[in-house]
Design a protein around this nucleic acid. Structure first.
Lengths: 210, 210
DNA sequence: AACTGTGAAGTTTTTCACAGCC
DNA sequence: GGCTGTGAAAAACTTCACAGTT
């Protein structure tokens, strides 16, 4: 992960913030208003010291003797992560996976909105999915530039993923969430995150006896 | 990630092996037979020294002066990761996401096979998806025990995820791939991996200017 | 000439432990 | 009494650099 210009805050710290935020979301859903580094740490399997140290990079969000006000901490973390606004995301590929992503209800309340869908299959172009019409790949660059979209989710077959990623980068996308099981080669200033369930499974089988 | 008994090999090293394997798969697909730590590192954005060091935990897989024979290294990594066999996996929840998972073709050649599907919705029970029939939750424990299944993918709504996870653990599951945006609380000997696309997106927005 | 495997050095990350505050 | 924020210490991880092999 390339830290473009930003700060001196370790990537590994940034990577944990969304996890903290997710835990806070759950606590808030349960109606809780205050928590502590100790409680959060217990839930996440992380030491309380690490949580306090991580948060301390951005200022003092807690109260000694009391802990952290959940709503306030959520707000602060959203600000740090730049999601105190909504980001438009392009979705490329509307096969089974792309459709499931398009229908997923969990983006909206966490800072993201799917703004347009693309597929190279003429049979899929024109289809209505969610609120949007599937557009042809030829329309991609124009649409992304017109709407000023910075993020894309890539759900195309593995053999096309690198090629489509190249197009995305040319179109001005600077962050790619890649669902294809391939490591993308991109310029240094482009962020990539990977979603690969098989990697998750393979990371567990090592620890299974027999 | 709890290292249950196993060895003294750092979790962070184990976590990278599936990534190496994925890169090797691509090289093999391209017909290449030999690679080097330098080439792999370039593709993955990792130093060649780290790759060599990681692999050295498990013995010498390369040849000085030459590099690594791809097929041989794949075989060795599969053995280390315990995927030199096929693991049966249970899938819980067959909404949009669960269906997309059930139809995904990418598990088979990387060590996994979806062996049974469950859903709590009576309207979905009995449906045919892929090669299997959706079973009711009441059948879960028996099916998992009969088939000796150790791994599960959890694709149920967030508000049921913890409760279903508890049932899975009681049924003898020891590894859970969790698609719900919630941190699961499980006994120490249970492995959990998370698939949360929003976390991926949130990890990128920090680095986007504006 | 090219590349691995590896101790040793260097850097990063985590934990400790406690002063300060509620 | 309980909790945060934080320097200092400890642990973990990565990189260096090179001897040894093909």
């Amino acid at each position: 992960m390339a830290s473009n210009g930003h700060d001196n805050i370790p990537d590994i710290v940034i990577g944990r913030l969304p996890i903290y935020l997710r835990a806070l979301n759950r606590l808030a859903d349960d109606g809780q208003e205050i928590t502590s580094s100790h409680e959060l740490g217990q839930r996440l399997g992380i030491s309380s010291a690490q949580i306090r140290k991580d948060l301390s990079h951005f200022g003092g969000f807690g109260k000694q003797g009391t802990g952290y006000q959940i709503e306030y901490l959520q707000e602060k973390l959203r600000k740090v992560l730049n999601i105190d606004r909504e980001w438009e995301v392009a979705l490329i590929g509307v096969g089974d996976l792309g459709k499931a992503i398009a229908h997923y209800r969990g983006f909206a309340d966490r800072g993201f909105h799917i703004a347009c869908l693309f597929d190279s299959d003429p049979a899929k172009v024109g289809q209505e999915i969610g609120d949007y019409t599937v557009q042809p790949m030829a329309a991609l660059q124009q649409a992304i530039q017109d709407k000023g979209i910075r993020l894309a989710m890539l759900a195309v077959p593995v053999q096309h993923a690198q090629e489509v990623a190249n197009t995305l980068v040319e179109s001005g996308i600077t962050g790619i969430l890649n669902y294809a099981p391939i490591n993308l080669t991109v310029p240094k200033h482009i962020q990539v995150q990977y979603i690969d369930p098989v990697v998750g499974l393979q990371r567990m089988t090592y620890y299974l006896e027999d």
